[in-house]
Design a protein around this nucleic acid. Structure first.
Lengths: 204, 204, 204, 204
DNA sequence: GATGAATGAGTATTCATTCAT
DNA sequence: CATGAATGAATACTCATTCAT
């Protein structure tokens, strides 16, 4: 997996067209319900052409997911590394959550399909989640050592942090209101960050 | 949907046998990948019999999900209403999250399939999520009014609270470690509740 | 494999209808070129029904061949065992060759497909050819011991004998004249039997 | 078809490379199961190039078969014409059968595919088989007239003679023992020639 | 001439649903 | 009511052939 690749992919090359179409369709309909015919049509190519670029349908899923997470991880790492104040994590979460919403396609694909495709899940886990978790963990650890964060298990906190991303990017669209207003989304993101930092209890 | 029904369903009646089998299979393999033949076999009946009890395969999905959330909601409402201290919410979360793990089958089915079946999602939302949210919202509201909780938007906090359930019950199994140890699960549940109440920042 | 089964199969049961259609089509067009759609149409059933009776297309081929040889072998054994005079082998050959013509469908299927389907070939060989060869071999052996046949290696003679069957039933239709006249066929059968018994050389 | 052409084809010219690859692949896998991609790969050229040299896949089959029989026929004619003694036909058969084994690739291709490609069969028949048959027929005829061979229908004997070739070159590999030992092959060839000349009956 | 990416009709197989028993 | 054989539309994937480079 290449973490540094990407925004340069020309949208005219077929593989990219296929992946773009696949991301949209998989997210909208799920992997199983997306037919290769639809995929080809959406990419503006013939059905057979799909199989010149990817060995089979599942390989398209793997590519979509791998590429997507790759981008996500790159962005997160960049932002974390540039973040001066350890209190600014709220800012980061807010930003991330709002942009994550745009990538909720990807989140959905992952959550939906990872479960039924062990090899896909293994890739996501070993190549991505673990990397993200350990980066965030190190970040939290530093915050704890500096006395900014409470003395909680950094590994666990990292998971909660990442889990919150998913709430934001994923469950909103899925089970909550059809189309939450931008204002509500903003408040949601800010409250989530606030709770993450301060909790809901009044400080005694 | 009946919220108060349920523990009286005899496991020998065919509809229940079908639903039990379906919940397991849908969670394990997803709705699309579960064939009616498997369903029938798992329920110990003939394939055609399925269609005497449910109009079509999708009706089985709807029934599984509705029934499951119904139980979940009933339990949550009971516990909330019986809860004296508003600080004890941590206790509740811990309990819920640990038991939720057992019901992760249901969570999975919901998260996976709700998206692709708008009518299912609508039912879940209008009949369940909204009810849960408003109950939790009222609970939070009271906590805020009593000065136990900070003055945050109760509706938003309620969503965060419910969202955290899902982290616990769902994403763990799906994307995190293959089989998180009970000890880790317990720590995860407690830390999540702790962060929800206190945040990660050191109290200044 | 059952050697003694057969002429009692009711032509109304679907498996038999499928096999009958398959024998004709495989012989006419080959296994690869026969589509399951054609197969179903010829058997007067739906395409999906094929797969309720046979696991896959190849299983139909195996069944056709096995069944066919089974019948052929049964007949041959019966005739050989009932044959009084060891000179009468000519009579047998003539009869067999003429009826074989009707079963040339089967011969073709076997010769064509056996080669590309090792497991099929193995079955034919171990269950049928070897049985036929050893029966004929024993017959020849007896002829040699009685002084009726020359002292040639019975195993080799048996193979030649069986090979001659194939010339008769198979290569005629395939490479020789489109439709050899019955008269020519009869002469061919008789000459083949004659040469087998007496050779072409004038007795010195 | 050119009977006198050929062994001068340089193996570097593309058409020949294609034919060589095709003969091997068709014999090994059959015509239908050999893909043009395999063909191109085996010939070391691009897939599209095939279609600059042959109009379509079937034309390659026709060329392979025509060329092969052409060589076979040339050899047979040469040997027959050089044969002094009419008793020496046994020698010829033995030789032919042993070398035929090497060309069993060709035999297989012919037997397999001729049947399903009427135009191919017509070519083989009119241009080759008929020529071979009539040459052999004339040869037998002469033997009969000289009193060496019994007074059998020369046309029929010629067919039996050619049919025996096929037993030898073809059916052995296909349905008989996996890999008959050279010794067994030799005995087979000799016995076949012996039976052809003398029959199996003890001369009374 | 050679290439190989693109094509799309065609394939075997699956599976929700029906219906005669 | 329960059954399970029959159905046939729908699916992922293959491959001979074309054509712009």
């Amino acid at each position: 997996m290449q973490l540094s690749s990407r925004p340069s992919v020309p949208p005219t090359d077929l593989s990219s067209r296929i992946l773009a179409a696949a991301q949209r369709l998989f997210a909208r309909q799920g992997f199983e319900k997306t037919t290769t015919r639809q995929l080809a049509e959406a990419a503006g190519i013939a059905e057979g052409t799909l199989f010149r670029h990817f060995e089979n349908k599942k390989a398209i899923l793997v590519a979509v997911v791998t590429q997507g997470w790759s981008e996500l991880l790159t962005d997160l790492l960049t932002q974390l590394s540039e973040m001066g104040s350890y209190r600014a994590v709220a800012q980061l979460m807010r930003d991330r959550m709002l942009t994550l919403h745009k990538q909720s396609d990807l989140m959905r694909v992952c959550f939906m399909e990872a479960q039924f495709h062990p090899d896909l899940r293994d890739r996501i886990q070993s190549e991505i989640i673990n990397k993200m978790t350990s980066v965030v963990e190190a970040f939290i650890q530093t915050g704890v050592e500096r006395g900014t964060y409470r003395d909680l298990n950094p590994k666990v906190v990292a998971r909660v942090f990442l889990g919150m991303f998913m709430i934001a990017g994923f469950s909103q669209d899925t089970l909550m209101d059809e189309q939450p207003s931008p204002a509500f989304q903003k408040e949601m993101a800010e409250t989530l960050a606030d709770i993450f930092l301060n909790g809901i209890l009044v400080q005694s």
